[in-house]
Computed example of a mutant assay.
Amino acid sequence: MCGTVEEGRPSPWTVSDLTTAERALLTGVRQWFRAGTAGAMASMRIGLNVAGVPNTALLPLFALLGTFAVAGARQPEIRCPACSRISADEAALLDSLAAVQSGDAEVAAQLFDRWLPPVALCMATDAMGELGGILDGARIFLPRRRAARLIAPASSATVVDLAMAAE
Rank of each mutant, 00 (worst) to 15 (best):
M1S: 12
G3F: 09
G3Y: 08
V5C: 13
V5W: 09
E6I: 01
E7C: 11
R9C: 11
W13P: 15
T14W: 09
T14K: 11
T14L: 15
V15F: 10
V15P: 02
S16G: 02
D17Q: 08
D17Y: 10
L18A: 08
L18H: 00
E22K: 02
R23K: 14
R23T: 06
A24D: 10
L26A: 03
T27K: 07
G28M: 04
V29L: 13
V29R: 05
R30S: 03
R30Q: 06
W32E: 09
R34Y: 05
G36K: 08
T37Q: 15
A38N: 13
A40P: 14
M41V: 15
A42M: 15
S43V: 14
G52S: 08
P54Y: 06
T56F: 01
L58T: 09
L61N: 05
L61I: 07
L61H: 00
L61F: 04
L61K: 05
L64I: 02
L65D: 01
L65N: 04
G66C: 08
G66A: 05
T67W: 06
A69C: 09
V70M: 03
A71C: 07
A71P: 12
A73I: 00
R74A: 15
E77Y: 12
I78S: 05
I78L: 12
R79N: 02
R79G: 02
P81V: 00
A82M: 12
C83T: 00
I86Q: 01
S87G: 08
S87A: 14
A88Y: 05
E90S: 15
L93F: 15
D95Y: 07
S96K: 03
A99F: 12
V100P: 01
G103M: 10
G103Q: 05
G103K: 06
E106L: 08
E106K: 12
A108I: 02
A109N: 00
F112C: 01
F112M: 11
D113C: 01
D113W: 05
R114H: 07
A120G: 08
C122L: 15
A124F: 11
A124K: 07
A124P: 12
T125A: 03
T125K: 00
D126G: 08
A127R: 00
A127Q: 04
A127I: 05
A127P: 11
M128L: 13
M128A: 01
G129D: 03
G132I: 05
G133H: 07
I134K: 01
L135N: 04
D136H: 10
G137D: 10
A138M: 08
R139W: 03
R139K: 09
R139D: 15
I140C: 07
L142A: 11
P143A: 13
P143G: 08
R144F: 11
R144P: 11
A148L: 14
L150F: 13
A152Y: 07
P153Q: 06
A154D: 04
A154G: 04
A154R: 00
S155Q: 02
S156D: 12
S156W: 12
T158W: 03
T158G: 01
V159E: 12
V159K: 10
V160S: 06
D161I: 04
L162W: 03
L162M: 08
L162E: 14
A163R: 13
A163S: 13
A165G: 15
A165S: 15
A166V: 07
E167A: 09
E167S: 10
E167G: 06
